[in-house]
Design a protein around this nucleic acid. Structure first.
Ligand SMILES: [Mn+2]
Ligand SMILES: [Mn+2]
Length: 403
DNA sequence: GCCCACC
DNA sequence: GGTGGGCTGTTATGC
DNA sequence: GCATAA
């Protein structure tokens, strides 16, 4: 009995894909195994490939389950089937990474076997790595924002885009947010696509200032929807359509029709329900590739709005740092201990005043927690104290540490 | 999840 | 032969 | 050049 006995070899379109530990339970709550996950992606392959196919992507690998931290892998494993395509991205620093490009159902199965749960492609095609063919409107509700308000913002964004000649295709993010995808003719570089996205974000925030914000500084966003335009910068990825998200309920980033958006909720769309939905009604985003537009309209609006005006004498907000930790759980434990010691002020804190940040570290995220004390009466504000938990993401190999 | 360097 | 480390150190803005 | 965010 060797280890390979606990593997299953699937034949996918004439290609053999080895799935190790097919019976491993990946999602205990709905009881989904690794093989179930592979079969899900094969069943929705048409939609999943429309979202991620032909694009270089980062492998976000949950090899120890959805409750453990994932690691990110840009460079394709050296040992891979010859039918796995790749594309080499180059960075300003002079470094590069040969990333996986999924092009068919077999490749989908292969990346799931590596421990990928969601797919995180770049907004470019392998054929043109410098000019995105997709503008991504990443709508991130700050804590406390209702779905209803998020949808309002999505519709405003849709209006602005339509006025500027662009078609927006909505999907749930699979977490709390909404993504709008806009297919572009690949004629503009990242700089301009990002500028277009920022312009859209500013315009949306101008139209519904109570509901939406384009503020980069997190503590200034308030209880609003952050239109995360920077997700259109180079080297940023977004979970693609039909991606399963690493959450207990196996939620899926699900393309919807615009008239579904208001009446449905993200938690309705899981591996089980999306399988059924996809079989019955197919992909609402099926037409996206025929909708490619141009950025002229948004870039004209950029000129109309002018440069971002900054508030020279703005008071810095009273933000204190609570924890830095290798895992979200550790960081939140620290927050709980801090709360226990400062019970008196908790009533003043609003949901959006607790800032939980996933920070890019080496091959993984680490977590930071801060608290914005703006709603706490000045006299009652706790001082910055030593961190409840501390963590040095660059411990070990530091720049300048070489033999 | 899996390779590979190291013991 | 078994074990354990590595697997993204980018990008852009604002001060 | 440092901090800030994804
Ligand atoms: Mn988002
Ligand atoms: Mn975001």
């Amino acid at each position: 009995m060797s280890a390979t006995d606990s593997a299953e070899v699937l034949e996918v379109d004439g290609r053999e894909v080895r799935i190790s530990h097919p019976d491993k339970v990946v999602f205990p709550e709905p009881g989904l195994t690794k093989l179930d996950l592979v079969r899900y992606y094969l069943a929705v392959a048409d939609g999943a490939l429309r979202g991620a196919g032909g694009r270089p992507m980062v492998l976000k690998r949950f090899v120890k389950g959805i409750d453990r931290e994932a690691f990110f892998q840009k460079r394709a494993p050296d040992k891979r089937p010859e039918w796995i395509d790749t594309a080499t991205l180059h960075y300003a620093r002079g470094t590069s990474a040969e990333e996986v490009v999924v092009r068919d159902a077999a490749a989908l199965a292969w990346v799931v076997n590596l421990g990928c749960i969601d797919l995180n492609p770049h907004p470019v095609r392998a054929e043109d790595l410098d000019r995105p063919d997709e503008l991504r409107v990443d709508l991130d509700p700050m804590p406390g924002v209702e779905w209803e308000h998020l949808v309002d913002v999505a519709f405003v964004a849709r209006d602005v885009l339509a006025e500027r000649g662009l078609t927006a295709w909505p999907k749930t993010s699979g977490s709390r947010g909404i993504h709008l995808l806009v297919r572009l003719e690949p004629r503009w570089e990242f700089r301009d696509v990002r500028l277009a996205a920022e312009t859209l974000a500013r315009e949306v925030a101008l139209r519904v200032p109570e509901l939406a914000t384009a503020r980069w500084w997190k503590e200034e966003r308030g209880e609003r929807v952050f239109v995360d335009f920077n997700q259109n910068a180079k080297d940023r990825t977004v979970a693609s359509a039909y991606s399963v998200r690493p959450r207990a309920d196996a939620r899926v980033s699900t393309p919807l029709d615009w008239d579904e958006l208001r009446v449905r909720r993200p938690e309705e769309f899981t591996v089980a329900t999306v399988l059924e939905r996809f079989a019955e009604r197919g992909d609402p985003m099926a037409g996206i590739d025929e909708s490619a537009g141009v950025l002229d309209g948004l870039l004209a609006l950029a000129a109309e709005l002018g440069p971002v005006e900054r508030d020279a004498d703005a008071e810095p907000l009273p933000v204190i740092e609570i924890a830095r930790a290798e895992t979200k759980e550790e960081a939140l434990d620290g927050l709980e201990r801090w709360k226990a010691r400062h019970g008196g002020i908790l009533g003043h804190l609003r949901p959006a005043d607790v800032l939980v940040d996933g920070m890019r570290g080496s091959s993984s995220l680490w977590y930071r927690i801060r608290v914005n004390l703006q709603h706490v009466p000045e006299a009652d504000r706790p001082e910055q104290e030593p961190l409840e938990v501390d963590y040095d993401p660059w411990k070990g190999r530091r720049p300048g540490e070489e033999a």
